[in-house]
Design a binder for these strands. Structure first.
Lengths: 111, 111
DNA sequence: TTGACGCATTCCTATATCGGTATATATTGA
DNA sequence: TCAATATATACCGATATAGGAATGCGTCAA
């Protein structure tokens, strides 16, 4: 089984991130997304379906349009999983700073 | 084409997140990961390969062992992509209006 | 009612990927 | 050299998914 249908998986697809980024600016009908992304309409609908299934978007009907809007909380598990790692790469930067400082001490400055 | 080989994709697989979480505590040989995760050795090696290819881990040889360690910066794009969304769901919490309006809203077609 | 629009779904094909098993490679030890 | 250990890779089968084309279905306009 390839990667369960969760937010991580939904967001692994660049096109879906693109869609989410567009929806982050506000509610939009499918056709808007089609135009903005340049993808085919069925593809957009299919991506939206995946996003809907993981709770990342929600839709409401308005006449013959279907307006989609973002449900940002669905992305929370991603944020919460990745956040602790941020500390690690920041520590690393600090260490690198130390290393660079040391190199600079015993060495002339160079570009 | 199924989702390019980037950090998002690497992390979409729960087993790989598990491996990263283990490596977050320190450098480990493959066999350690095999034991900790309960997966088969080839599976672990294959997941490690994916993680290596996106720069999320690095290895060094020590005798007949190969020690893997985390390269947390590889996860940075994920953090940076998802972070702005955090503001959105937090705003949502703060704005009781929105929450109430949503509970009241009965016309969404999925819920 | 007819026709156009907006969207979802279905069918199709190509490709990826996962898990499992077997095997290849390299290292260590006797 | 042979055996054992540690890891990577190749191969296999099953499944999933992306994209495209066609189609279904509801809605608006006349």
């Amino acid at each position: 089984m390839p990667t369960t249908a969760d937010a991580f998986n939904a967001v692994a697809e660049p096109r879906r991130r693109e869609i989410l980024d567009l929806l982050a600016t506000g509610e939009r009908p499918v056709n808007d997304l089609v135009e903005q992304t340049g993808m085919g309409q069925p593809q957009v609908s299919k991506h939206l379906r995946v996003l809907r299934e993981v709770g990342a978007v929600r839709s409401r009907d308005q006449g013959r349009r279907r307006l989609y809007r973002l449900e940002p909380e669905a992305l929370r598990p991603i944020f919460e999983w990745v956040s602790p790692y941020q500390r690690l790469w920041e520590e690393r930067f600090e260490r690198l700073d130390d290393v660079l400082a040391e190199m600079k001490e015993g060495d002339g400055n160079d570009g």
